[in-house]
Every structure is written in structure tokens, then in C-alpha cells.
Amino acid sequence: MRDVRAPIGEDDLQAFIDQRLDEPRRAAVEAYLAEHPEIAARVEAEGRQRDLLRELLQPKFDEPIPAHLRIDTLAAARRERRRGRWQTAAAACVMFVVGAGSGWFGAMQARPTAQSRPMPMVVADQATLAYSTFASEVMHPVEVRATEQAHLMTWLSKRLGHPISAPDLSGHGYRLMGGRLLPGGSGAAAQLMYDDDHGSRLTLFVEAANGDTTAFRFAQDGDMATFVWIDKGMGFAVTAKTPRDALLPIAEAVYRQLDTAPPPARGS
């Protein structure tokens, strides 16, 4: 401890108010206060106010703990929430398998195989199917929402084995809704979904795709338009129910944001 004869400082006065000084020091402070009545009055007032706060707040401390704050209650509610989440997840899995079995894989089997179609068209087919399956989905259009964009992009990048980021299409009136992971032709595929103020949806579909880098290719399937290209072993497809001319500048914007290289010559 400090020397008993050391000058009394502000720290001593505070510790005195809190009754945290050892006995020799406390006596030294008392002697000092006896000689300095103004400081003594101040210390006395501050000590009284400290006690006052304790008195005023003590009834709150003494109240019985409300039932809803008891740890048993909170832990039980927590278990309930976890189980609820698990059940929702399990139900989603079942729905996905049913949907995938009847729609996704069924339709894929009806398509010509990858060997007989050019790679960009294979990517376009898958992108179009994914669009028709999920863009019409009202309840669960995306698996992970855009509010968790960082998590979403890290996750999709990891599963694709290729870093991707979500292009900003706000200049074209489209906002990112979120994304999901899908089975692709040779591994995982990612679908990012956007919508505009009218509720029109646009998707960016990405998957690993063998083959040389290509120019933009255009594919039309019913009212769904798709621009697709292969770049550095990855296939990209931008799909929306919109005319070709309206979609092209958006596809170009996506391309520019995914790769700083100049856009390739347009094919069709």
C-alpha cells in the first residue's frame, strides 16, 4: 500500500467515499479532512449521495425475479425456438427434394445431354430452369436473404470453389433479394435473385463450366430471356422475363462488375 504519510489525493478521497481504504490510510484521510472542512463537506455530501442511490435502488434488488426472466423459462424458450428452426429446415429440405425430383431433375433428364449441346447452352438451360423454378416462388424465393449478403457470398463462393460477388444492379432498377445453392452440371451452382419495383425478377446463375471463354450467347425459352457466357472456367447466365434488348445492358453490367476486363464481342 501507499505510504501513510503520502499527500492525500483525489483518488484517496474517492476510495474513502467507497470505504475501500485500508485502516492506516483511512485514518490519514480522516485527519486530512479534519483540517480541510470544505473538502470534508464535499466528501460527506458525495458519500451521502452514494448511500442515497443505494437506498433508492435497493427495493428493485429485493423484488422477486419475475417468472419470465427466470433462467429455466428462458432456456426452455430457447430450446423451443431451436426445435422450431430445425423443423422448418427439415420441412424445407423435404419440399426441396420433392420439388427437385419432380421438376428440376425431371426436366434436366428430358433435355439433351451436356455432350450434345454447346457448354453455354447447357448453362443457359440450367439457368432458365432454375429461374422458372424459383423466380415464381412467393414464399421462399431465396435461401439466404440479401440482409446477410456477406455470409451469402462467402458461402456461395466456397461451395462454387470460385470467388463471386453480387453485382450491384441498382442502376438498372434491380435490388438483390438473396441467393441459393443449387445442383449444377458438374458440382454446385449458385443463383442470385434480384427484383425491381414492379416485382419483376432477374437471376444471375453461376456454375463451374469447362470450355473456352466465350462471347455473350442469347437464349430464349418461352418468355424467359437469358444471356450466357463462359469466362475462366465459370459459366454465367443472366435470366429475366424481359425483351432481349432490355436484358443486354444488364448482362453487360454484370459482366463488367464480375470482371474488370472489357466486355467480349456480342454473339447471339
Partner: peptide, 18 residues
Amino acid sequence: LGSRLEQQIPALRRYAFA
């Protein structure tokens, strides 16, 4: 853990109220 947390509740309520 439950009982150790619960012991702190009266003081937490007092601090939160203040």
C-alpha cells in the same frame, strides 16, 4: 450455469432500472 446466472438477476435488474 443456470444458478450462477440467476444469482445475478436481481443486480442486473437494479442496474437496468437505474
